[in-house]
């Protein structure tokens, strides 16, 4: 690590970032914020806080910051039990003419791609629209193009096997000398939105929000704010999935019905229609 950031440094930098980037950086968990900043300092060979503050004056750096600040390392079909549980929801999805899915922080493609493969196998892909929010243009561009950056192929295949998929995972990807790509027919329903989901317009009439492991990064108060926006986006009977080791913030832990305590899927009151 190039520089050891103390509490006061982090507080100062969270305020500077909030001002320069127009997003609230003061609400991150302390250790998370420290790790991500340390990672960025190492990546850009930043030795001093003042050097970082100079970089923040360069507009082009903002996008590089957004791209690298997000946690982009996950895996396809992480927690296969969750993806198997989605299969039990298919009959409810099949009765609808349109199914809107929202990833409020699509920090890497794997969760989105896993959903698209699930939708294809469950014959609901044609009805699906998948909204993805992120602050990084490049990240969203990668998702739209179906670029699989982390090639944990063996791990992904092993998760897919546990998901009990209908095919072979590699059948959904094309590989050439430039990289690994999800086939274009699968990425067709993806619609990207380049801003934080807590700012500006957000998608409405959402059937299912997949928001797994993003609240790990925030403090409790901010998690409630995130859920305020997510809850408002849902249709009656709409659902939200959070990470299996996250807690649903108050008041949504009482306002919503837990459909699956192990996979942490919650439902808004009402019936899907």
């Amino acid at each position: 690590m190039a520089i050891n950031l103390g509490i006061n440094d982090l507080k100062e930098l969270s305020e500077v970032l909030s001002e320069k980037l127009g997003l609230d950086f003061t609400q991150y968990g302390y250790s998370f914020f420290k790790r991500r900043l340390s990672y960025i300092f190492d990546l850009f060979n930043i030795k001093k806080k003042s050097q970082f503050q100079e970089l923040l004056k360069v507009k082009e750096f903002h996008q590089q910051f957004f791209y690298n600040f997000a946690v982009n390392n996950t895996e396809m079909f992480r927690d296969p039990g969750f993806w198997r549980f989605l299969k039990t929801l298919t009959p409810a999805f099949q009765t609808k003419n349109e199914i809107n899915i929202w990833f409020p922080e699509a920090s890497s493609g794997e969760e989105v791609f896993s959903f698209l493969i699930y939708a294809k196998e469950q014959n609901i892909l044609e009805k699906v629209k998948v909204f993805c929010n992120h602050t990084s243009h490049e990240k969203l561009n990668e998702i739209e193009k179906g670029i699989l950056k982390n090639k944990n192929l063996e791990l992904n295949k092993s998760n897919y096997k546990r998901f009990e998929g209908k095919s072979q995972l590699e059948n959904y990807f094309s590989i050439d000398n430039t990289g690994v790509y999800l086939k274009p027919e699968l990425t067709a329903p993806v619609e990207t939105i380049t801003h934080s989901f807590l700012q500006g317009d957000t998608p409405k009439n959402i059937t299912l929000v997949i928001y797994r492991n993003a609240m790990l990064n925030y403090n409790k108060k901010y998690c409630t704010k995130c859920m305020d926006v997510i809850y408002d986006s849902l249709v009656p009977g709409g659902m939200v999935a959070i990470g299996i080791k996250e807690s649903m913030p108050f008041p949504y832990n009482t306002k919503m019905t837990c459909m699956n305590q192990k996979e942490m899927v919650f439902k808004k009151d009402g019936f899907l229609n």
Binding site: I7, G29, Y30, F32, V71, N73, T74, R78, N213, L216
Partner: peptide, 22 residues
Amino acid sequence: APSNYHMFIEFDNSFSLSTEIV
């Protein structure tokens, strides 16, 4: 520490979990 999560201890004597890189 739960499977497939990093586990951190915060200054306020609480846990924070993470799915960051291995």
